[in-house]
């Protein structure tokens, strides 16, 4: 039996005024492309941050490749935040070299290709990049690595609509490592729909519907976009 990439067992995350996660149970098999679908404030970011080891659950059990999130799991995980979290004063190449010191799996040749694809200059200061360029930059950083688990929080935010489909397909297609598990959070389901193996619908901190995308299509006769509307409205 293979160890699941991610296990969440009755995970609760309480904030002073809200419950971001309210008892999430989830097991994700390695190699899957998972869509974490929900509106803003449904707990998507909190869930990804808990998996990334940046936040701790109030209660419940979290396992990433069979381990509690920590230094060991961080070696195998790439977390790409929705907003820019990189140092403004670094250059694009400076950042890539910095990340490479921690993740030997980062391939500079691939990074060069990706920079070209994303139209980013290596000498550019991160603070001087536009929002859209910063959104592309994190994809360059994440995809240059061969992380076993990639966590993408709203990767389409800040990417212009014409490029979205292209980037999404590159993401799960030619750019993805063999066997890499990918979790993508989004509230824009239409564009991302065909790339998911597995979908998790999150509403008010609970996964209200979850399953294999194809099975859900066969069972309900609905697209994920339609289900998103039905389950989450």
């Amino acid at each position: 039996m293979t160890i699941p990439a991610v296990i969440l067992d009755n995970v609760v995350k309480r904030f002073p005024l809200t419950k971001a996660l309210d008892g999430v149970n989830l097991a994700i098999d390695p190699g899957k492309v998972v869509g974490l679908l929900g509106h803003n404030g449904s707990g998507k970011t909190t869930m990804l941050k808990i998996i990334a080891g940046l936040r701790r659950p109030t209660s419940g059990r979290v396992e990433v490749f069979g381990m509690t999130p920590g230094v060991e799991t961080k070696k195998r995980v790439a977390f790409l935040s929705e907003v820019n979290t990189y140092y403004d004063w670094m250059t694009v190449d400076g950042l890539l070299n910095f990340v490479k010191s921690f993740h030997p799996d980062l391939c500079l040749e691939k990074a060069a290709e990706l920079k070209e694809f994303m139209k980013l200059k290596g000498a550019a200061k991160i603070g001087a990049l536009s929002k859209g360029q910063q959104a592309r930059l994190k994809l360059v950083v994440g995809l240059s690595r061969q992380a076993d688990l990639m966590l993408l929080d709203e990767p389409l935010a800040g990417i212009d609509p014409p490029s979205r489909a292209k980037i999404l397909h590159a993401l799960v297609g030619e750019l993805r490592q063999e066997g890499q598990t990918v979790i993508i959070s989004t509230h824009e389901v239409k564009e991302a729909e065909p790339i998911f193996d597995h979908v998790v619908f999150l509403r008010e901190g609970r996964n209200v519907l979850e399953g294999d995308a194809e099975t859900l299509r066969a069972e309900t006769g609905h697209s994920m976009e339609e289900l998103f509307g039905e389950v989450l409205e």
Binding site: K49, G53, S81
Partner: peptide, 8 residues
């Protein structure tokens, strides 16, 4: 979040 996502 970036700093703390590094394996250190």
């Amino acid at each position: 979040p970036f700093l703390r996502s590094l394996p250190v």
